[in-house]
């Protein structure tokens, strides 16, 4: 009871503080570049979190608008948070997920991240539909990461997310930790008809 009351109090203060802390300097997260670019994505064999074999380009990217992030399941620091950010994107896009936008998380540690491991990682975050976690043979994933511009594997992987409209052939980069509204706008722009407008 006491704990509940305290929690409630903390919530009120929290709300109040959010109001004025918004005025304080913004956190230094990498801003989205906004520049669009083309990506040649190889159609490599990969496995999803259910152990199904897929071809990365033709099954996950072709003709779609996709958001791609890079994770590994033994990472306890930023990967859970990136995944939470992706989950937020998924929730905010509602029924547009799986219709207009698809999500893909690529493991940068395919040797460790077998499908079962990806599945249990995904389950922790209650990931919804149209979100594929990807692993595969190390040489294939290495090639894929190089093609996606995220070649540095292991714990030094970037917090970058890629947002691409394959139908129109253009991609943008952002930070997974950028304000959610910024990333949502980028994603919706990319999913729209003027995705590749300068």
């Amino acid at each position: 009871m006491i704990r509940q009351r305290n929690a409630q109090r903390c919530r009120v203060w929290l709300a109040a503080f959010t109001l004025f802390s918004a005025a304080v300097s913004a956190a230094p997260v990498t801003a989205p570049t906004g520049a669009t670019f083309a990506l040649k994505i190889p159609d490599l064999p990969v496995y999803d979190q259910h152990g199904r074999q897929l071809n990365f380009y033709s099954d996950l990217v072709k003709g779609k608008t996709v958001v791609i992030d890079f994770i590994f399941t033994t990472c306890t620091t930023i990967c859970p948070q990136l995944t939470m950010a992706m989950r937020r994107i998924q929730q905010q896009l509602g029924d547009r997920i799986g219709r207009d936008v698809w999500l893909v998380s690529v493991s940068v540690d395919p040797t460790t991240d077998v499908p079962e491991r990806l599945q249990s990682f995904a389950a922790k975050f209650d990931v919804g539909p149209a979100w594929t976690f990807v692993t595969g043979r190390k040489p294939d994933i290495d090639r894929l990461l190089t093609a996606l511009g995220s070649a540095r594997g292991g714990s030094d992987h970037a917090t970058t997310i890629l947002i691409g409209n394959d139908r129109l052939g253009c991609w943008k980069r952002s930070s997974g930790f950028a304000p959610i509204a910024t990333n949502l706008k980028l994603i919706l722009d990319q999913a729209g008809p003027s995705a590749c407008a300068p």
Binding site: M84, K124, F125, F177, A178, I180
Partner: peptide, 9 residues
């Protein structure tokens, strides 16, 4: 957590 902070497990 996040920007702006939102409920997370």
């Amino acid at each position: 957590v996040g920007s702006p902070p939102a409920a997370a497990p």
